[in-house]
Design a protein around this nucleic acid. Structure first.
Lengths: 246, 246
DNA sequence: GAGTGGTCTAGACCACCGA
DNA sequence: CGGTGGTCTAGACCACTCT
C-alpha cells in the first residue's frame, strides 16, 4: 500500500491530472514505486492530494494507457512488472537520436518539386498531378549511416531550404510553421536492400533492412506527409507498447 | 455539420460511451460519416442522445485515441482523412488470420518443459532455473509457411496438450484458463534468415525476415509470456496507428 | 464576441473480487 | 460482506479559434 505526497500547483497552466501522472511516473522510474507495488485506492489518493476522484482517476488512466500501471476491479492498482520501455511516439527519428546523444547528421540527397505520382497522391489525398515536394535524405548517427528517408509533402507545406532541413530535421520545421501532426499510420516490414540502398547504408547488397511507411495527418484530419523509410537492421528497431482496455 | 441518431440501450451491460463510440465507428466505416465531416459540438450531441457531456466526450475520446476522429479546440471535431486502418491490437497472429479467412494452421515443432535460460528468466521475472514451458510452432496460412514462433511461459500457466495448441492457438487457450493479458511490450526488427529458418519458411537462406519479440503482462502486472517470432517478410508486416495527444 | 473543446468538481450507483 | 474500480450525472469555469 503506497500513498502519494505531491505539491500540486493549482495556478499552473499544466493540468492537475497531468501533474499527478508525471509525478507517479517519476516515482516509478526512479524506483520509489517498485514493480508490483499497490497504490492506495482512488478515493484515498484523491483526498491525499486534495483532488476530486475523476481527476485522480484520469491521472491513473494516463499511466495505465502507457502500460506503467495495471488496474483490477475489486483489487486495486499496481505497478506493472518488467523494465519500463517507452511507447513509440509521434516523433521523428531525429528527435530520438537527439535524445540519445548520437550526434545525428543529415545529408540531403534530393529536394525538388514534382508532379505527384499516383501512389503518392492517393496517400496524401491530392489530385493526381498536384505538385508535391520530394525529399530524399540520408541519416547518420555516431558517424554510421542509419537510414534512407523518402518524404513527400504537399508543396505549400514545405518552403524550407536544404540548409535548414539538414540542420533541424523535417518535423521540427513543420511544427514551427504551424503544422501540428496528430495521427500517423505506419506499416513496418522488412526486405532485402537494393544495390543503391546497400551502398548508401554501408551494408552488403541483399542485406536485410527494416522498412517503414508512414502517412501523417494534422489536427484537421488532412494528410500532410507520406514517408517511405529504410533502416539498417543492425542498428535500428521499433518498440511498441500495447495496452488492452478491458 | 452532422448529428447522430442512435438507440441507446440503458439496460444493456455495455457502457453507454461504448455503445455510442461503436455507433460512430460504424458510421465512419460504412461511409455515412465521410472523411473530413464535422460533427456537432459535444453539448448538442449529448442532448441528441440524452446523455451527459462527460459521457459523450468519453465516446468521442475513444475514437480520437483510435485515430478515427480529430479534435481542435475552438473549432470542432472532424473525421480524419485517409483510409482507415486498424491499430495493432493485443491479439495473436492466429486471431488476425482467422478474421482474414486465411485458413491458418499450426504445426507444433517442440513443446517441452525446461529450466529457464537466463535471458528468459529475466524477461519473465523468474528465478534463474525455474521451470518454463518452451514452445516452438510453425504457422501456416493459405498453405504457405508464414512464421516461426518461439514462446516461453511459466510452467504453471501452460498445461495444454500439443493437440489443443495446434487447434486453438496459445492466446485463446490462455484466456479460457483465466489469464488476462493487459500489457505487451514489443520490439520489431529485421535480419537475415538462418539456414534452418529459411528451410522452415520456404525462403532462400539469408533472405530478409521480420522479427518480433514480445513480453506480455497480465492484469496483476506479472509477466506471463515471452515470445520471439520470425515472419516471412514477403507476406507479413505490422501496422501501427500513433496518436499524439496535445 | 460567440462558439468550441479542455479541465474540474462532488456527488451517485453499480459490478466485481476476495475474505 | 466490505472494498475496489467502472460508469454516469449536472453542473462550472477556462483557453483557444475564428470572424
Amino acid at each position: 500500500m503506497t500513498g502519494l505526497s505531491v505539491e500540486i500547483d493549482r495556478s499552473s497552466p499544466v493540468p492537475l491530472y497531468f501533474q499527478v501522472a508525471q509525478h507517479i511516473e517519476r516515482e516509478i522510474e526512479e524506483g520509489r514505486l517498485a514493480p508490483g507495488a499497490r497504490l492506495d485506492n482512488e478515493i484515498q489518493l484523491a483526498d491525499q492530494l486534495g483532488l476530486s476522484r475523476p481527476t485522480m482517476r484520469r491521472a491513473i488512466q494516463e499511466l495505465v494507457n502507457k502500460g506503467l500501471l495495471v488496474r483490477k476491479r475489486g483489487v486495486g492498482t499496481q505497478v506493472v512488472h518488467g523494465q519500463i520501455k517507452r511507447p513509440v511516439k509521434l516523433t521523428s527519428l531525429f528527435d530520438d537520436l537527439t535524445r540519445a546523444n548520437q550526434r545525428p547528421r543529415t545529408e540531403v540527397l534530393a529536394h525538388d518539386a514534382v508532379a505527384a505520382p499516383d501512389s503518392i497522391s492517393v496517400e496524401l489525398n491530392l489530385r493526381p498531378g498536384d505538385t508535391v515536394v520530394r525529399l530524399k535524405r540520408l541519416r547518420w548517427a555516431a558517424d554510421e549511416p542509419l537510414a534512407i528517408m523518402h518524404n513527400w509533402l504537399p508543396a505549400e507545406l514545405c518552403p524550407f531550404s536544404a540548409q535548414r532541413l539538414s540542420e533541424l530535421g523535417l518535423y521540427p520545421l513543420l511544427r514551427s510553421s504551424g503544422v501540428n501532426m496528430r495521427v500517423a499510420k505506419q506499416r513496418i516490414g522488412a526486405r532485402a536492400a537494393t544495390a543503391e540502398e546497400a551502398r548508401l547504408l554501408g551494408v552488403k547488397r541483399g542485406a536485410a533492412v527494416l522498412t517503414m511507411t508512414r502517412t501523417a495527418f494534422d489536427d484537421s484530419g488532412d494528410a500532410v506527409e507520406f514517408g517511405d523509410h529504410i533502416y539498417r537492421s543492425d542498428s535500428y528497431s521499433f518498440e511498441v507498447t500495447l495496452v488492452d482496455q478491458p
